[in-house]
């Protein structure tokens, strides 16, 4: 089974701080990482390969520093990685991203071998849209399914998946080729082996494709190929709050201050009425 896993190189949003003076984002010096929600998808691919054999290929559309992230994923045990990188791909929305990724997957099928399964993580920490999975499935005209918590091979031509909706647990059989989106924390990703990481580096198992290789119309990629445009950004309007801060003498004092607010504040009074009744 040849499995492609899409991963994204994202700014570590946990490291983004807000400038207390201006209230704006401090982006400078924010390190990028492999999107953590993609790692369960890598893990799922490696487990499938262990069961049925085959190959795991990681694909990322990203600027060249993403090589570092791809090395980590190779260190987890992926067989090779494809970095799709070109200045013309910059500024892509999810539509333009899915276009490039799906063309890269088709090129893998044509040049490396038929791709049976494409796995993605549930969402990225920097935009959390969950769009690209369905968009890629649409380009490839393959069946697809989201929120998958477990995936089992059924011979060479199908997988059995379990997934969760708000109120349902469902089980599907999906014929290959297909796109499957793995739920957050569905599987614990294995650690990176430094040895595999080094070996992958020595064996040059990262392939780089630019648009000279993909030959896509520059009007369909990057910012130009994005149907959505950011017209403007504004500060998030502040919600008016009372902002009363109390430094209590002791815990009992703290508790009684909160209870007092629950009587004095007419909104919170509703909650207190729920406890003592309407006679309040």
């Amino acid at each position: 089974m040849r499995i492609v896993v899409g991963v994204k190189w994202v700014p570590n949003t946990q490291a983004v701080r807000i400038d207390p003076e201006t209230g704006t984002l401090i982006r400078k010096g924010v390190p990028s990482i492999v999107n953590p929600h993609d790692l369960p998808a890598v893990e799922a691919a490696l487990r499938l390969r262990e069961r049925v054999g085959g190959e795991v290929i990681v694909v990322s559309m990203a600027p060249p520093p993403a090589v570092k992230g791809l090395e980590l994923v190779l260190g987890m045990g992926a067989d090779r990685a494809v970095l799709v990188t070109d200045r013309v791909f910059a500024g892509a929305d999810t539509w333009a991203t899915s276009y490039v990724l799906s063309r890269a997957i088709q090129k893998i099928s044509a040049e490396i071998g038929r791709v049976d399964l494409v796995l993605f993580g549930h969402e990225t920490i920097d935009s959390s849209t969950s769009h690209v999975q369905a968009q890629v499935a649409s380009w490839l005209d393959w069946p697809y399914v989201y929120y998958v918590s477990s995936i089992e091979p059924l011979g060479d031509n199908a997988v059995r998946v379990e997934r969760e909706l708000e109120e349902y647990e469902e089980e599907y059989v999906v014929e290959l080729p297909a796109v499957v989106s793995i739920a957050i924390k569905a599987m614990k990703p294995r650690p990176v082996s430094l040895q595999s990481k080094l070996r992958a580096k020595l064996e040059r198992r990262i392939i780089t494709w630019t648009n000279a290789d993909l030959k896509l119309d520059p009007r369909c990629v990057g910012l130009k190929g994005s149907p959505t445009v950011v017209a403007k950004t504004v500060d998030m309007p502040e919600v008016p709050r009372k902002k009363e801060v109390y430094r209590p003498r002791d815990p009992k004092d703290a508790a009684r201050w909160i209870i007092r607010k629950m009587v004095e504040d007419e909104k919170l009074r509703e909650v207190m009425k729920g406890i003592v009744g309407d006679e309040l």
């Binding site: 969950s130 369905a134 649409s138 399914v145 909706l165």
Partner: peptide, 20 residues
């Protein structure tokens, strides 16, 4: 969950943009 699953498919099939 379903809406977030099928909406980007709709958008892509119509070659249209989508905002989540």
């Amino acid at each position: 969950r379903r809406g977030r699953e099928f909406a980007p498919y709709v958008a892509n099939s119509l070659k249209a943009g989508i905002t989540a």
